[in-house]
Nucleic acid binder design. Structure first.
Lengths: 201, 201
DNA sequence: TGACAGTGTAACCGATTGGTTACATAATGT
DNA sequence: ACATTATGTAACCAATCGGTTACACTGTCA
């Protein structure tokens, strides 16, 4: 008590907990105040209103920088391998981060432009990587379409993994399912990028 | 007035309109009554409560039977062609039916078990078709993983098409984007199912 | 000591929520 | 004609929402 910074972080931690447990739909000022054990007047005093609170929460997050960094990008690495690393990284990232899934859900269902800003930051790194593919690959194929479908598939399966145990015969909550998806992605990368070569001068 | 059936359909039509315009999140009794121009007491009288209303709405829908029927299933049709028809059908279905997308959004974000029931009916036909693949194909590949990723990708891209114009360089709201996705799916089906043959005895 | 800024709480506001009670009116069967 | 049933509306209920006002306390600087 008597410490503004501490109170602010307590509030933001409350937001964090609330989103993780109930999602964005039930994220009201009263709920945050209750969860944080803090008078809601302080929320208005320190964050102006619900929007300001959400904005400082979202923009102060480090979560969005956990993009798959394991993608090998050396000169000699074949594109198939790079793509595999990218997709497997996204798979682990999505399935391993419940808060991230909650934010995607938020973006899919709300009209709040802030959700777009946050999504942009989430996708930032991945976009740079996929850009590399379409820039450097010498192929007639629509690489962007392939990538979009695969990334989208990973997103969707991660999202419904919170709601159901199985999708199309794949157990989404077990390691077995994760492994099958991982292998499937790897196999698809082989089929798609297997014969592609670097663009000539 | 004075006609129960007519009032009931007016209410259900109001639900329909409301979901299409605002989604499930803002679907309250008061909103339905306002939208339908009907006293909310009648909603309670005829449908018991919000849950009952939603249940009769969802279970009385014909929408869920518009699954891609164009999939050729004759004996001589190659599997690659069948798969292509299945996925392209799903693509058109998802992008062409806003109400369907709202229901999927609902399922992704709510805890209501009813949403699972509705999703089961939506996926029913597709599940039967994909089951055929894993049953009849003689391959070492994890066909279910491929199918799950592709179907999921179609779902996700359709969902975000309501929120953003472009994803990964694909314009989601234009015919061009639809065509590119369609071609991408076709091409992937070629890569995946191209060499698969029917299971021998 | 006193003025003053920052931190905190309780109580209230109007609007809206899901849900109910009471009552008026129209149709129906005897 | 009369009693009963179905259809409809207005008014109300407690609870919750985002947001505000008023007031008590604590420290700091003069």
């Amino acid at each position: 008590m008597g410490n503004r910074e501490e109170t602010e972080t307590r509030i933001l931690e409350g937001v964090d907990r609330l989103i993780r447990e109930k999602g964005f739909s039930s994220l009201g000022i009263n709920a945050v105040a209750r969860e944080s054990g803090v008078s809601k007047v302080l929320i208005y005093r320190y964050f102006e209103n619900r929007d300001g609170l959400l904005r400082t929460w979202a923009l102060g997050k480090h979560y969005w920088n956990d993009a798959p960094g394991g993608a090998p990008s050396g000169e000699g690495v074949p594109w198939q391998e790079r793509a595999t690393a990218l997709f497997e990284g996204q798979l682990d990232r999505l399935f391993g981060n419940p808060l991230l899934r909650e934010v995607i859900r938020w973006h899919l269902s709300s009209d709040d432009p802030l959700s777009r800003d946050v999504m942009d930051r989430i996708e930032e790194k991945g976009k740079g990587l996929t850009q590399e593919f379409s820039d450097n690959l010498d192929t007639q194929e629509d690489v962007n379409a392939f990538v979009s479908l695969l990334i989208g598939g990973i997103y969707y399966l991660a999202l419904i993994s919170d709601k159901t145990d199985q999708f199309n015969g794949i157990p989404l909550k077990s390691d077995e399912g994760r492994t099958r998806l991982r292998d499937g992605v790897t196999r698809l990368c082989g089929l798609i990028f297997g014969e592609m070569t670097k663009k000539g001068p």
